[in-house]
Design a protein around this nucleic acid. Sequence first.
DNA 1: GTACACCCTGACGTAACGCGAGGGTCAAGC
DNA 2: GCTTGACCCTCGCGTTACGTCAGGGTGTAC
Lengths: 252, 252
Amino acid sequence: MHTVGEVARMAGITVRALHHYDEIGLVTPSGRSASGYRLYSQADLRRLQEVLYFRELGMELGAIKEVLDAAAGDRVAVLRAQREGLARKRELIDRMLRALDEALAAEEEGSLVDAKDMLEVFDGFDPSEYEHEVRERWGSTDAYRESARRTARYTKEDWARIKAEGEAASEALIAAFDAGAPADSEPAREAVRLWWEQIDRNFYTMTPEIALGLAEMFVADPRFARTYETMRPGLAGYFREAIVAAVHSGHL
Amino acid sequence: MHTVGEVARMAGITVRALHHYDEIGLVTPSGRSASGYRLYSQADLRRLQEVLYFRELGMELGAIKEVLDAAAGDRVAVLRAQREGLARKRELIDRMLRALDEALAAEEEGSLVDAKDMLEVFDGFDPSEYEHEVRERWGSTDAYRESARRTARYTKEDWARIKAEGEAASEALIAAFDAGAPADSEPAREAVRLWWEQIDRNFYTMTPEIALGLAEMFVADPRFARTYETMRPGLAGYFREAIVAAVHSGHL
DNA sequence: GTACACCCTGACGTAACGCGAGGGTCAAGC
DNA sequence: GCTTGACCCTCGCGTTACGTCAGGGTGTAC
């Protein structure tokens, strides 16, 4: 039987942590002294060992409780779920690292890209975003592979051009919107055409299906909606209507 | 000028989040209506864009404030620091993934390794741990490379043998400790010998310097101390003394 | 007897909000 | 002019995994 302090020193954690584990019923000392001191048995120490192991894997204490209190069969499932979560985290971090590298490169070149521009890149014109969405929502692995293959060879100048083309399309759209042109009018259709061709040339072969899918996404997915909505409130919806109209008119 | 609800919809975040950003002074609406409604200008929206961009990179709000309020020159430094932090996180996740895979493999094979055993592997006998520590603390890249080269070819049976050897060394140590043998007595020296040879055979060429370094680590680093302290309280310190004594005696 | 190390139970603070509670505001419709 | 619904406001508590006092009892050595 060991007191909290002893156990804390052995395990390399704090007394407070042990109090906490006791509070939430994760590791409860099997005994108390006459004066109320917590007394941990060898079995308690083993339980603590298990907890610390899983904690080191990044699991939340609640999840650890589940695992330890689960039957042996369920453990594999819990561990697998944990693994998946970690893998997702890793992918996220990888994406962040790529974005940060871009931001750093831009900042260091003194090209004075402010964060607003970076956000546009990140949200609207980053092919990795597109790839991800395209692949995930339509399982269109062809488009994904095509995009990956093409963009792999793009230079910094290519990217600048692509960004300019994207901005030109956005500006045409804004102009039509500001002029009060209906979403199925010629100016709006022209903006859609610019956008369509830009993607078709730079990323992957556009199809009406993909265009309509993207149109939905622009209003439904906040990350995309934001890009258009902050240009002009209502622009995301307008763009979607324009895409739908243009696709249905067949004049592309 | 937009109200909170509008801005929230545009940006794809919640009203509460905007309230929070206001509270901590991250994005403060530049105006209020007569009735106290928050009113966001275009400039406020741009600021929000920047915040959301960095937030998507995983930065904490406090850190975002620093970046946005920093001069252009400092930004690069802040971004770089952020990048480093992310890279560290990534490495951590990679290590967790490897450990989880091991745990899963063990669990699926039905080899009935319980978490206590896994912890021992993780803490005391996982070569990747050793590699990391050895490399980091003594910059001994030779030992690191040697270990990596050797362990790459080990089979599951090898690992079982190695683990058994490690346990044999621990048991000899515990026996000496329980018997009350001094740390510089023959039984203790014998345990150190077993331990030394096990590492030497299985991981990398042992040297007195590395042995003394490891000895320090076993008491100073909780992850290692835990392994020994939970076997017997005081064992980590005893082991260190035994290693020191054995090295100094020259009888290895 | 008292000093010092150890133990106890609250209870507040952390980051980034979620989720109500209780109560004004605004535009539309009757 | 009044109601209805959709807004908006400001508290204020809950979340995770503890850190950090605060106030007070316990154990042991000198």
